[in-house]
Design a binder for these strands. Structure first.
Lengths: 204, 204
DNA sequence: TATATACGGAACTTCACAGTTTCGGATATA
DNA sequence: TATATCCGAAACTGTGAAGTTCCGTATATA
């Protein structure tokens, strides 16, 4: 019979840097095999951590994933680095960069991996949307608003709806069709859908 | 040691009507809880069948689901019943009917439930897409082509891309946002995205 | 330097579910 | 009416993964 003690000042300190490593590993595995395919052993192995370390920090697989999604700000675009070319098309085309496409692709694969959890946990659906999908739509809204402000497009443009078009079609292609997002595909959305929809066709 | 017999003419015949009942039950459960949440017991209970009956007809849960998706033609639109109003907007708006929206919603929920299987089985991804998503896109392509033929819209319209816009945005809303598809939402896609994109804005 | 806690690793326990078998009863052929 | 197969129901088996415990070691306080 041993004495149960509780001396919070004593003993080795929990290493805070392990949290980020584990959450990153969880997102990697999530993007690769999805929530159901992911096992705690996979995440632990990827993070070179013991399973006990994971359960010391998160009570369950579900809570680990929820936390990982909530903390994935690092993939967000740097607002200061956003293009401002003077034309809507210039701004949209300037977003077609390898880095941004890679990050966007990973976000969409994470979203695909979360799919099966969304119906069980509506608050996760909300978190996932605002963390994964919303930031890029917000960028599009800004581009559209600037275009309105400079008189490039009509003031009654449905900014919210148009800003979702690219996101929706990219998500559809990645998640449903399982096809890669290419620069050609993104250019085609811009030139054949978005710009015509805001009245900026090829001036025919 | 009993004699193994093989008298295909003898004995009670397999009831073919059970197949459809079981496949329908599988699609129902799939739409409600997804592939991972679905259990064979749920499907058997829903179809009022014994588990042994299911395994006499399909070797595994996976094959049952693949067959269910491949056989779900009954939700398809009757090609003869398609609208032909004389205008693109008329045709598109005529598709906003309770029955079609309900069937479309169920199809998208089935697609969401299949998500976790798609990466494991690329041929299922192909089947699911051609069975679930493609038929409605084909209808849109027909509407667009007719509009081109009658000179309502430009001949160089990117029909394939535009035909996907509605599908993509509806799928995005149902699966990612978990919000219901309303007539207002569909009208907004038609009037604020699709028609402007093909040069049929509100004649401003 | 004694105590308390974190670490990675591995063995262990528990449980839900896929898949199998068995049952009594129904239905088909010969 | 004997045989073979189907049916739904329920008991049973096997397995993979969530979650727990224990170990030897590392690192912090007092």
């Amino acid at each position: 019979m041993t004495q149960l003690t509780d001396h919070p000042k004593l003993g080795r300190k929990r290493d805070p840097s392990r949290d980020g490593d584990i959450l990153d590993a969880a997102l990697d595995v999530l993007a690769e095999v999805g929530y159901e395919g992911m096992t705690i052993d996979m995440v632990a192995a990827r993070a070179k951590a013991g399973k006990a370390t994971l359960y010391r920090r998160w009570a369950s697989k579900e809570l680990l994933v929820i936390d990982a999604v909530a903390c994935m700000k690092q993939l967000d675009v740097d607002p200061a680095a956003l293009p401002d070319t003077g034309t809507l098309r210039g701004d949209l085309v300037a977003m077609i960069k390898p880095k941004a496409m890679e990050d966007g692709g990973k976000k969409l694969r994470i979203m695909a991996g979360l799919m099966s959890m969304l119906s069980r946990d509506p608050s996760l659906a909300e978190t996932a949307h605002s963390t994964i999908m919303e930031p890029r739509a917000a960028v599009n809204r800004m581009f559209l608003q600037r275009a309105i402000d400079r008189g490039e497009i009509a003031a009654d443009t449905d900014v919210d709806m148009i800003a979702q078009v690219g996101q929706s079609m990219a998500a559809y292609r990645t998640i449903m069709l399982r096809k890669p997002i290419t620069p050609e595909f993104l250019l085609s959305i811009i030139d054949n859908v978005i710009l015509p929809a805001v009245g900026l066709g090829p001036q025919k």
